[in-house]
Design a protein around this nucleic acid. Structure first.
Lengths: 334, 334
DNA sequence: ATGAAAGCGCTAACAT
DNA sequence: ATGTTAGCGCTTTCAT
């Protein structure tokens, strides 16, 4: 513990200069004599001075905070996005502040409201399906707003992501082209994970175009996990064993599906092809091939960070306002 | 976008009261007449007023920020801890601010310094092996410091975690008791992931006590991943096929090891027992049993959050200053 | 190259 | 129940 933190004024007194000179010296301003600068720096070290950003930002009317709101930390996808944002902000002097809203739009709004009160210089949110009240909050904030991970909707400002509807559709096309005909769908928390719902809708659209449909569906309210994917797959195959393909809401669920098939002795992908979404590291090491759409999560975070840097620097038109990523499908061949 | 954000003063003018009354009304103070409160609230809504926490905190000399520094987001362990912290802080009015230091002590120090400048009311850091300069920074901060996830060392203030040395030792005991004798070790980034190193050291100590040692080791500088665990396992089994147990730096690596064994046709756990650390969700769904130590990551985060709340509330001695978690070993039976 | 004054938006403390 | 004054720690602006 210890005593109260030293202030700039105390450092200035210690160094025998005015607050202003101390401030300049600390910030490495050019017009401070070397001698003075040294004395101030030394005084600051002696007093273990740590500047007060609250005062700095209030006074200068600028902050280095970038607010970021994600739905969850339980799905590796979001930590990876955050890592990308954090890395992309490195060296910019900006600092990401993360909030987790648990896929809850009300909580999201409150978190956004709270974060805005810190006067961030930009805000990054997940998706573009916020309710009107939240959108109003964001528009009113008068800072660059980046909507991340999804393209299917109308962005406020900047938009970085991929079309989940298209991702689902492309996967369906690949699977149908590969000869699959009897499809099952396994997903979870679709009311909350809107992007998973969009993928499913895109997938179904293509099925319809081919006169096909999901022969069976297993849905659950819980959030996605490997264990849940496994459980629902066991249930589905008990009902309808003669499927030749199951589409999952994501790779976690799909991996669980693969493990279920392995236990049941169902050959993957020969008998049943398993398809997910995300392109997780896990998928590439699995003992059997499963199909997935690679979503460049870290890259999206990095690009969002780059947009923030440019927007804050005032290069209003430096980049496109919408950055489109294309999901790359792997493992879907017959 | 829009115009400059409204200030409290503008809200007050709009409502025809003084700043102070507006402030009280907005904060729901008791001694404001219902009529006045309504007028102020309405004015605030009309102006889309969002309070300025910089000013609030500077003026009141308190903040609701809890600084959190973790080494990485690539390992699911840390996001889970963060989720626990975030959930544990819910409803307290406190807000977690996360920083990622990439297992880099210099970066960690800079992040801590930067975070302290925001005058957080508490700080949570990972482990207790910070270099002296970082420790000094933390001690000087004059706020509760929580060191998380590790117990092997001397805490500054509060300490929540488990002993990784002991976790490694207990795992070794269980495996030796189960009859395993020819051990291999596979790990990565041990110079940076000090807790993995402590587990290995604890494991080796027990081996020595039984006159045993690691017959082979595969180490790599890269960070842990399923793919890396798989690759190193293939390499190890090519060199020394007659091992009966491999201890991995964590469950990701161990899972990769299992997938390698499956591809090589090595029976797990009959021929080779695979042991990791963390107790990931993944492990429970895997097609073969692997041993692991359950580390209650989310719970650690929640407990850390509880300590923060208590400490900030001034209940100095409400809890033990050190909260010890015991890793539960599963899947290690013969 | 250095300093003094004013003020960022809010709350604490003290009126009334 | 409401208002006034002072000030949080810093930067901005303007002097010197």
């Amino acid at each position: 513990m210890g005593i109260r933190r030293a202030t700039l004024e105390e450092v200035a007194n210690e160094a025998g200069v005015s607050k202003m000179t101390a401030s300049r010296a600390l910030r490495g301003a050019s017009d401070v004599s070397k001698d003075t600068r040294d004395r101030v720096l030394e005084a600051a070290t002696r007093l273990s001075y740590v500047g007060n950003r609250l005062a700095l930002s209030l006074s200068s009317q600028r902050t280095n905070l970038v607010a970021v709101v994600v739905p969850s930390m339980s799905n590796v996808v979001f930590p990876e996005v955050l890592a990308g944002i954090s890395a992309g902000l490195d060296g910019s002097g900006m600092q990401a502040v993360f909030g987790i809203c648990d896929y809850d739009v009300v909580k999201e709004r409150e978190i956004i409201r709270d974060m805005l009160s810190w006067q961030p210089c930009a805000i990054i949110v997940t998706g573009l399906d916020q309710p009107e009240e939240t959108l109003k909050l964001l528009r009113n904030a008068d800072i660059p707003v980046i909507q991340l991970m999804d393209l299917d909707g109308t962005p406020i400002d900047f938009n970085v992501g991929l079309s989940h509807g298209e991702a689902g559709a492309e996967m369906a096309k690949a699977l149908v082209a590969g000869g699959r005909r009897r499809f099952g769908y396994i997903g979870s928390a679709l009311e909350r994970d809107l992007r998973a719902g969009k993928r499913k809708a895109g997938f179904e659209r293509i099925l319809r175009e081919h006169g096909l449909h999901f022969v069976d569906q297993q849905l659950d309210d819980a959030f996605s996990s490997i264990a849940l994917g496994k459980r629902l797959t066991v249930a589905m195959l008990a009902e309808i064993p003669d499927l030749d393909c199951i589409y999952y809401s994501n790779d976690d669920m799909a991996s669980g599906g693969l493990f279920a098939c392995m236990e049941l002795g169902v050959r993957v992908p020969e008998k049943i092809l398993i398809a997910g979404f995300n392109g997780l590291d896990l998928v590439n090491s699995l003992p059997s091939r499963i199909a997935t759409s690679q979503s460049p999560r870290r890259a999206m975070g990095e690009v969002a960070a780059r947009l923030v840097r440019e927007a804050v620097a005032g290069k209003e038109i430096a980049s496109e306002k919408t950055i489109i990523f294309k999901p790359l499908i792997t493992g879907a061949d017959p």
